[in-house]
Design a protein around this nucleic acid. Structure first.
Lengths: 214, 214
DNA sequence: GCCGAACCGTAACGTACGGTACACCTCCGA
DNA sequence: TCGGAGGTGTACCGTACGTTACGGTTCGGC
């Protein structure tokens, strides 16, 4: 499932980044209705340049997705200072970041695009999966395992535990947004959801070493 | 969010159902690459007939989605014979059906199509939401409330409880499939997942009246 | 100031496909 | 037998858009 990322994926020239930004904006606005002409106009460049730089429309889309996906940053957690409270706060912060990322218009547009083209052989779906769902898992797993080593969490399989966490945090939010359901999450709601999901996760996987609440 | 369903949405003639079946098959095979010509060829009818019956491409897609969505059946639960074991079995069966439906190729293709067109004003996204996610909620809620009335479940809001259940059952399955991740669920895995999700749901929302396990 | 490379703006080409027009066939009731 | 309604197959049109080609322009190095 790992996808070959362009070696120089983050070495776009400033001018190219302007183009990619324009493409991303148009993607959010018009979805897959994005045309090469529109990108060229928005970025004040010629189509010929687009084709020279990115090969074809697919290449431009792929570059855009990679470029944006690489910007997703998930917080790392310091394993040294591990006490029940900081563990829980780390997980809760992770939940908050995950939820606000997924609920953002950029994520929705990017996932829509990738899903639309998921059956083709350009790896858009795989790229989004790798930089989204799977990267999240890789980032949180060390935290979970640290919690387990410290006897604050109990689970057999970190992957399975993460998947449950993923479900508890996102629930139906992502699919509803992807399907065009117009509902927005305020910062306050995101915070409350993150706290709820974290509580539930500790209820399912916590030990008595960990803070519990209901 | 409620969508006006065609009054006669289930009164398609057999011949029309052949056309809709062909369209659905092509949808699964080719996704949005489905063309009117291909549908006409597959169903051995003329394009002119397609346009007479369904108006335009959008109408055909909408009819196909409605027709298939109406076929989704969610199990009803008999509230009379409510004991801890049957409640849990009902919920577990619901989880199994939900998971196997969502993981099916038809559901994936339909959701892809709806997501692709979610930004347009044809109500594909809304139709799928209504017949999928929201219908599921409406069907399970009475069960949950019956469980609460019988002191076997504890929650403030049935909608919120259902959303958590939804997340526990599906986790990352739907988004991964939509993004083209090639993984399949065997009947055995679906059964195990349904049981796990149900256990976790009871851990979170059950009372001591309900069967608990870990 | 000169040269070449890179880039811009735009026009044009090719194609795919939604949608339409039309000739022909089939069936059925009078 | 006949006529018309409904259906099939096919050719065709218009359009949108990806892609290419080309003339004009900017800019860095000498």
């Amino acid at each position: 499932m790992t996808v070959a990322i362009r070696p120089a994926s983050d070495t776009f020239t400033p001018r190219q980044q302007v183009v990619l930004t324009a493409a991303l904006d148009l993607l959010v606005e018009a979805g897959d209705g994005l045309t090469m002409t529109a990108v060229a106009r928005r970025a004040s460049c010629s189509k010929e340049t687009l084709y020279k730089w990115f090969g074809d429309r697919d290449g431009l889309l792929t570059a855009t997705v990679q470029w944006q996906a690489a910007k997703v940053r998930v917080p790392a957690v310091d394993r040294k200072t591990l006490d029940p409270v900081s563990l829980k706060l780390s997980i809760q912060q992770f939940a908050r970041d995950l939820l606000s990322t997924i609920a953002g218009t950029t994520s929705v547009a990017l996932n829509r695009l990738a899903i639309t083209h998921a059956t083709e052989d350009n790896g858009l779906g795989a790229i989004v999966l790798d930089n989204g769902r799977f990267t999240m898992g890789k980032r949180l797993k060390p935290v979970l395992e640290a919690g387990r080593d410290a006897r604050m969490l109990r689970f057999d399989n970190a992957e399975t535990a993460f998947r449950t966490f993923f479900g508890l945090v996102l629930r139906d939010v992502q699919i509803r947004l992807l399907l065009g359901d117009k509902f927005t999450l305020t910062a306050k709601e995101i915070e409350a959801d993150a706290e709820r999901a974290t509580e539930q996760f500790f209820t399912l996987y916590g030990t008595n070493q960990a803070p519990r609440a209901r």
